[in-house]
Amino acid sequence: MGANRVTTEGESSGFAIHPMDQFVIKPLFGGTEVYWYTVTNVTLWMAIAVLCIAGLLVLGTRRRAIIPSRTQSVAEMIYGFIYNMVEEVTGHDGVKYFPYVMTLFLFILFANLLGLVPTSFTTTSHVAVTVTLALMVFLGVTILGFIRNGIGFLSMFWVSSAPLAVRPILAVIEVISYFVRPVSHSIRLAGNLMAGHAVIKVIAGFASLAVVSPVVVGAVAAIYGLELLVAVVQAYVFTILTCVYLRDAVGGAHH
């Protein structure tokens, strides 16, 4: 499945602008083949995200002021927000994984928000990116769970509060739901962003009909606002789910 070449050209018969061509990965400096090291628009927008994060968290806090400037207080707010989330959800032992959670949150937040810049490229709308992020969390949590709790980590699947007869069934369900986690974790993020951007593009495509174009402008503005909300909420949700999964590994078998 899905072996489409991005370079394939076809007859344009439907939309004047195709809702999916905003997700195409193109090499920045010529050429058509995308090798693993090729500098593409993915590279560009991830680099911009890194620059934004550096600007906010490194340049913004360079004065180390007791009374913070506006940028510094935003950086401190994000820091406090994620720190409290990690501490509340995973408990005291989870705080040492805070930098990792912060990295995920900042990357997803800035990738989502930068994706809303017109004509930009949304890196987090790609399943490859979110699957990598989710698998990192999944493998990290699983390995960490076995390191911290040994074989006792498996007792997470054996619900000791349930009657003995239904425990095997519950164990099967728990195992399945455990392995579905990275799937839903990644598809949620990519799907939300892909859907939002595609919807904006589809609606914008209707603007070629002069009659409805004023409505289209309003609708695109409204959905753009919704997408801003979605961008922040999805970053938050990805992060908090990371914390929830981390709790299983850090907090032991009880969940």
Partner: peptide
């Protein structure tokens, strides 16, 4: 895809770009 429009299909499922994305993401 050709009948759908610009014939890009779903770029997300174009596995030839996955190593590139994963590399730059890491």
């Amino acid at each position: 895809a050709g009948q759908g429009g610009e014939a890009v299909g779903m770029p997300q499922l174009d596995f030839s770009t996955w190593p590139n994305q994963i590399f730059w993401l890491l």
